[in-house]
Amino acid sequence: MSEHTDIQVSNSKIDMMKHGLIIGMPITLGYLPVALTFGVVSSQSGLTLGQIIAMSVFVYAGASQFMGVNMIVMGAGALEIIIATFVLNFRHFVMSFSFMNQLRDYSFIERLPLALTLTDEAFAVASIHKQEAKQKHGFYFYAALFLTGYAVWVLGSLLGGLLGEVLPERLSDSMGVALYALFIGLLIPSVKQELRVGMIAMVAILVNVICSLFMSTGWSVIVATVVGGLSGIYFLREDEVS
C-alpha cells in the first residue's frame, strides 16, 4: 500500500515537471535566439567567454545584459552601469511581490529559486497558471518552467559566444517578435474571459506610452506596471479574478 502511494507521488512530481516544460516551450523558443545573439554581440564587443557566461548566470536579465555590454563598450563608469541595471530590472520587484503572494503557502526554500530566476516571461506565464500553486507538487511545475528558461538562456549565450552567428541574421531578428507574441498570447485569453483585465492592461499601456516620452524604458515600465496594478483596486473590486 505504502509502495503504491510512493509511486503515485513520484509520478505526479514528474508529471508536474513535464507540464512545466511543455508550458515553458514558448519561452524556450523566445529565449534561444536572444541568448545566441547576446553571446555573439558580447564576444564581438570583446568580452571573454567567462564574462559572457558569468553575466548570463548571475544577472539573467536579457535587456539589462545587452545594455550592460553596450555601456561597457562605450566606456561608461561601473557605478553608472550598475545604477542603470537597477532601474531597468526593478520591475522584477513588483512582479516578484505579485508572484510570491501567489505562492504564500510555499516555504522560503521553495520560493528562493523561483525568485532568483524570475523574469518577465517566467512571471507572465506563471501568473496565468495560478491553479498549479494550489495543486500538489505545484512547486515542480514552477521550478521546471523557470529553470528551463534559465538553462536555455545560459546555454544559448554560451553557444553564441563560442560559435558566433548560428542563425541567419534575418531569422534571429524576426524571432525578436517571439516574446511579444508570447505576451499577447497570454494576455488576450484573460481579456476574453474578463474584460476588466483588458482595462488594467490598457491603463498600463497608456501610462507607458506617456511616460516613455520623458522617462527611460526602465522607469516607464515600472510606473506603468504599478499604476496599472493600482487600477486593479478599482477594476477588480467585485471579486477575485481567477
Binding site: 503572494n101 518577465d120 498600463a204 496599472g228 496594478g229 493600482l230
Partner: peptide, 23 residues
Amino acid sequence: HRALQAVPFAALGALIFPGILSV
C-alpha cells in the same frame, strides 16, 4: 491583494506596447 493580482496584466500591457514597435 487586488492590486497585486492586477500586476501580471498591467505588466503584460506595459511589456507589449510600445516595445513591440522596436522589433
